Simulated assay, not measured.
Amino acid sequence: MSNTEKFTGRVSAYVAYRERYDPEIVLPVLREWRVLEPDWLIADIGAGTGMLSDVFLASGNRVLAIEPNAEMRQACAQLHPANPNLSIIDGTAEATGLASASVDVVAVGRALHWFNLEATLPEFRRILKPNGWVIILAFGRSKEGREENIAYEDFLRPFTQDGEGTRVTYAVYQRLKDHFPGDEFHHKEIPGEMSLDWDALRGLTLSLSHAPLPGTPQFAPFEASLTRYFDRYQQDGRITLTTRYWINAARFNQAL
């Protein structure tokens, strides 16, 4: 399955249960860094259903939501009917289809690990105006913290590629600064917690790319394993997980 199709069949769970970004948390950080102005044009790359786009729309920005998955684009359109500040475009991180030097900010949410960075970063540089910013952020459960977080990672490991767990896939985020050498790099982490009942935990898990889809041979053992995890760690019918906002903004070296 190509990366473009990883979320086909998962969109309803993604819309209903995936963690959403809070503009009241994200926007003050971006404004403090002076990396966002309301009149700037934003390219949200790998936009999915528009969760990160919503942050910039709340700031009054115009947003170009670039998304290669047809089901995701359809959901994004349904969630943003007739919004004049949002344009939904069929494109990839490596080939956005946007004009050169046309956007003020390139933004990426929880999608960077799906991109071919050797092709993506030159494309970002091409579509950005001079001195434009790249904003990369994520929000969701931490891989560490509470015992519940660590056990959830252990639960997922057999269902990830080659049983390696999510750390290998997400390692690109830890090396982000290597792609933006120099002083114009900002980073902030904001910890928190979320509490999930069974339906929310199941829905969130089904929205993940490595979760077996219902009807596949792996689904029954997957759901049984998730049930055992919930029964082991739930208190009063809820699981508590440590969360983290991971917010970054950088500029390319203009001399290159």
Rank of each mutant, 00 (worst) to 15 (best):
F159Q: 02
A171H: 11
W198H: 08
Q174A: 14
W198S: 02
G145F: 11
V168I: 08
P158G: 01
F159N: 06
Q174E: 12
I135W: 02
V172E: 12
G182F: 07
D154E: 15
E189I: 11
I135F: 03
H186R: 11
V168N: 10
A151D: 15
A200N: 07
E193W: 09
D199T: 07
K129L: 08
V134K: 00
R202M: 10
P181R: 00
T169F: 13
I190D: 11
E193S: 15
R146F: 15
F159S: 02
A171P: 06
V172I: 14
H187K: 12
E193T: 15
V134A: 00
G192N: 07
E147L: 13
Y170H: 12
E189L: 06
R202I: 11
L201F: 07
V168M: 09
G145R: 10
H187I: 04
H186S: 09
E147M: 06
P158A: 07
R175Y: 07
P191D: 13
S142I: 04
R175T: 15
T169C: 04
H187Q: 12
V134N: 00
W133M: 00
A171E: 13
D178Y: 06
P130F: 14
R141G: 09
A151M: 12
P191F: 04
G145Y: 08
F155I: 05
F139Q: 10
E164Q: 14
E164M: 08
K188T: 05
P181W: 02
K188W: 03
S142W: 02
F139V: 05
I136H: 04
N149E: 03
E193F: 13
E189P: 01
D154R: 11
R175L: 06
Q174L: 12
D178V: 07
I135V: 15
K188H: 14
K177E: 14
K188Y: 06
G163F: 09
F185D: 02
I190N: 10
G145T: 13
S195E: 15
P191M: 09
H186K: 10
G163D: 03
L176Q: 01
N131T: 09
M194D: 12
T205C: 07
G165N: 04
E189S: 10
D178G: 05
I190A: 07
T205A: 06
L201P: 05
D154K: 11
L156N: 11
G165P: 08
A200P: 02
L196F: 03
H186T: 03
P181T: 04
E144N: 08
I190H: 02
P130D: 15
A171Y: 08
